[in-house]
């Protein structure tokens, strides 16, 4: 099945979040979500909508056992636990019964295999990315302020339709207007890529794949605009930087 129709995707996303998408269809949609950033955006939007309905759900107090169990599973190892681990360090070597020792041994064997023969698990490109020899094919921009301080990191996978804007230096939220990110092609007019967060990171949808939009773009700028959706940059340039291709 090809998932290209926007209405179908919208319907699947809403049914998935509501919970009425069940069985194999639910699992297929979960896989689709992992592979497609545009589908994740749709799901997030539906989570926002349906999450609002939870406002009327009565609160309940769980047993204190719940937090104790969560804390035990999430807290970094305490000194006494480290001591216990030390005492039982050789336990996993015992062949009898296996149980946790067997599980640990299995994990170790798998880890060793993963490290020594990663080709069994991943493609050569994935291995290269994992070992740091290679980065995924993408468009990347580093924007700085007038003093050269790094402010924003913009990235989009080569054939992806989403763009991530990550704040890497402190940004003072503008008192009036909004910060808008623009792509400036070598020839032709600049076009808007999306809004700019003032902290954390933001993911936004692109109207087309980054390959089509950004292959001729050499420069990215952020301007301060009074209009929420300006057609062309008119405000002052706040940050700027080059847009590079990683191949």
């Amino acid at each position: 099945m090809r998932y290209v129709q926007p209405e179908l995707l919208e319907h699947l996303a809403s049914s998935y979040v509501l919970g009425t998408l069940t069985g194999g269809a639910r699992r297929r949609f979960e896989r689709l979500q992992r592979d497609r950033a545009d589908v994740r955006v749709l799901v997030t939007q539906w989570e926002s909508r349906l999450g609002q309905l939870a406002v009327s759900v009565p609160v309940h107090q769980p047993s204190p056992r719940v937090w104790a169990a969560i804390a035990a599973r999430t807290q970094p190892a305490r000194p006494q636990r480290a001591a216990q681990a030390k005492a039982g360090r050789l336990g996993w070597l015992k062949p009898a019964g296996f149980g946790f020792g067997g599980l640990a041994a299995g994990v170790m064997v798998a880890t060793v295999l993963f490290v020594t023969a990663p080709g069994l698990f991943m493609s050569s490109d994935q291995i290269a990315m994992r070992t740091g020899e290679k980065l995924p094919q993408s468009y990347v921009g580093l924007l700085t302020d007038a003093q050269g301080n790094g402010k924003l990191l913009v990235s989009s996978l080569r054939h992806g339709r989403t763009m991530t804007v990550k704040v890497i230096g402190p940004i003072t939220p503008p008192a009036g207007g909004t910060l808008v990110l623009w792509a400036v092609p070598a020839s032709g007019p600049a076009f808007a890529l999306g809004p700019v967060p003032t902290s954390g990171s933001a993911v936004s949808m692109l109207p087309d794949t980054s390959e089509k939009l950004l292959s001729k773009v050499g420069k990215l700028v952020v301007t301060l605009e009074t209009d929420a959706a300006p057609a062309a940059p008119s405000g002052p340039v706040v940050f700027s930087g080059n847009c590079a291709k990683l191949w």
Binding site: R40, V41, T44, Q45, S48, G194, P195, P197, S199, G200, S201, A202, V203, S204, M205
Partner: peptide, 8 residues
Amino acid sequence: YRSEVGGQ
């Protein structure tokens, strides 16, 4: 967790 997705 992303505080903003798709401009929202």
